[in-house]
């Protein structure tokens, strides 16, 4: 499922000091990179599907951050050499 992620610049806004832009309610910048999850706004606000098992959405996010931190760390290590 694809969502618009582009942010449109409101050129009229350039007349003032405030830059006016539009952004989607569901920013999908991250999900393009995280191929492991499907997201939809249909079920985003309601009850969970099942409350007697194991929901892994947080674990997936945590793993993503750990992996990215390691990547950044290893790149810094390489630059030091």
């Amino acid at each position: 499922m694809e969502y618009p992620t582009a942010i449109a610049l409101d050129k009229d806004a350039l007349r003032s000091n405030v830059v006016r832009v539009t952004i989607p309610a569901k920013a999908m910048f991250d999900l393009k990179k995280m191929q492991k999850i499907t997201e939809s706004v249909l079920d985003q606000l309601g009850c969970g599907n099942c409350h007697s098992g194991h929901d892994i959405r947080f674990d997936i996010e945590k793993q993503f951050i750990v992996d990215e931190k390691l990547k950044v760390h290893s790149q810094m290590e390489l630059m030091r050499r």
């Binding site: 969502y3 942010i7 405030v18 952004i23 309610a25 991250d30």
Partner: peptide, 23 residues
Amino acid sequence: GRGELPIELPTADYEAEITPPEE
């Protein structure tokens, strides 16, 4: 989105209109 920490981005006043999604 890339999983990076935003550090010292250029400062300016922005007003962002959040538009509803199309399911």
